[in-house]
Design a protein around this nucleic acid. Sequence first.
DNA 1: TGTTTACTCTATTAAATTGATAGGATAATT
DNA 2: AATTATCCTATCAATTTAATAGAGTAAACA
Lengths: 149, 149
Amino acid sequence: MKEPLPKFSYLSPMLSKKTKYGLKALAHLASQKDNRPVQIAEIAKHENISQKFLESILLSLRKTGFLGSKKGKGGGYYLIKDPKEILMTDVMRILEGPIAMVPCVSLNFYEKCDDCPDENTCSVNKLMLKVRDANLAVYRNNTLADLII
Amino acid sequence: MKEPLPKFSYLSPMLSKKTKYGLKALAHLASQKDNRPVQIAEIAKHENISQKFLESILLSLRKTGFLGSKKGKGGGYYLIKDPKEILMTDVMRILEGPIAMVPCVSLNFYEKCDDCPDENTCSVNKLMLKVRDANLAVYRNNTLADLII
DNA sequence: TGTTTACTCTATTAAATTGATAGGATAATT
DNA sequence: AATTATCCTATCAATTTAATAGAGTAAACA
């Protein structure tokens, strides 16, 4: 007895909204002619993002050295580095977390899997190592500049 | 003011336990000399998996045509196809769901992102398309046979 | 024929995470 | 001093995950 493919509703997509919003905001800032500060409200409106949620995302991008901010009138957020110098590996690690799908194959956040006795004979480890390498290759070969048309 | 890299505890790894357990169980079955039925309890014990949880995973793999089952004494689960014929794309789609990280770049589960006005100018779409292709390449080029030592 | 074995199915649960919101504090500009 | 806009803390509902319980069903075997 076979069943049809299960219907995934994508109610919980694998890419978090945080990352999605963060990427869109960065791309928005990178699209500015000069590097003028852009207000949260403007980004939120233009990119269809909850303003309060976006606030916390931009804040974390500022604290990790991607963005600068200016308070008061005419204030807002702006890119600190050239978009061509902003690697997706760094952005993704800040916004989404580890790139590896299991801790035991993570470069920056390695942890032993608590349930796995031996990584060398683990089939999951073997597959996820290849997946990690494939993803890393993409993120390393793409900068913020590559995301804007 | 900069912050150190956030510490991801990997409390919620991106690969679900369901997929992890499912892969391990499939690999366990593929490692059997003959294709004899293996009891749930044996797999669970050998692979450090909650037996009841594993039950439901194996059931879904049976209903989707990967496994056969035999009841009663000497019963258990067994592979229906040759491990070399079992593509990781198919396994991952059953266990984990869509391979794409956003619905708007999914081959098998396409959906328009509700918050995005135009996919053609979406920076997230652009990046996630590349990620999907990279992941697909890995999953297409690996079979269950490739997971066992 | 009856007992044992082992898969099948439904339902429930605690814990964690996500995404969103509210409200006020702070700092810079005018 | 007043306005603007970032900064920070706390809270919230909804969802998902992982695990467990318990009863039902079918096959093998003595």
